[in-house]
Simulated assay, not measured.
Amino acid sequence: MKSLEIVYASVTNMVIHYCLEFAAPSIPDGAYRLVLGYHDITAKLETGEEAIFQKAAFGLSLPSRTVKGRQDLNFNIDNVSGEVSIMIDNALAADEEVKVTLRKYNEHDLSAPAEPPIVMTAFATELDENQVKVSATFEDLVNTAFPIRRYTSEIARGLVWL
């Protein structure tokens, strides 16, 4: 059994740490990491790299399982200073792709995420009085062309009649 399955199935007071990571080239240190809770944690990523997640208050709504193709993750981050919103807005304004990664850790095992991470791409932010609302989406597989590589006359000269 996986460690999270044990936590879900048992009546214990083990905590699941929900961690968010925002990654873009313009973000300082390449990524901004948050953990839902009152204490910073140091945990290993799936790559084995050690990372510090800063304490934060945020709410998230996971996408429902549908066949519509596009699934969105919406979350609100309490952010009085607007730090998160400024970083994401700057990256989106520079046409950078902002990757949002959701990881779950068992409090007794921070050596790796307890489940494979959910990786999405941010597409919108909204700043309220003291909250940042961020929307991210999975890759839209239903509307993606197949094959992804298009054979045109520039890369395949045999397509043009001589």
Rank of each mutant, 00 (worst) to 15 (best):
T42V: 11
F53G: 02
D72Y: 09
F123V: 03
G59W: 07
S111N: 09
Y105L: 03
A31W: 02
G48Q: 12
V7T: 12
S26T: 15
T121W: 05
E97L: 09
L36Y: 12
V160I: 15
A9G: 12
D95W: 00
M1W: 01
G37R: 03
V119E: 12
V132M: 02
Y32I: 02
E115P: 01
D140Q: 09
D109E: 14
A93G: 02
Y18G: 00
I148Y: 06
N130K: 09
F146I: 01
Q131N: 10
F138M: 11
E50K: 10
V80M: 00
H17K: 13
G82E: 08
V80C: 00
G30R: 11
D78A: 14
R33Y: 08
Q54R: 09
D78E: 14
A57E: 12
S81F: 09
E49M: 03
E49K: 05
V84M: 06
W161R: 10
W161P: 04
M1R: 00
H39I: 06
E154C: 07
Y105S: 04
F138H: 08
L141N: 10
I41F: 04
R149E: 14
L162T: 11
A124S: 11
P147K: 09
A91G: 03
A31Q: 15
G30H: 09
V80W: 01
L73H: 08
D109Q: 11
A51T: 13
A112V: 13
A145L: 12
A91V: 03
L159Y: 05
G48W: 06
I27C: 07
Y151C: 07
R70A: 12
Y18I: 01
V100L: 10
A23W: 08
E21N: 07
S135E: 13
Y32L: 12
F75G: 03
K68A: 04
S153R: 14
S81A: 13
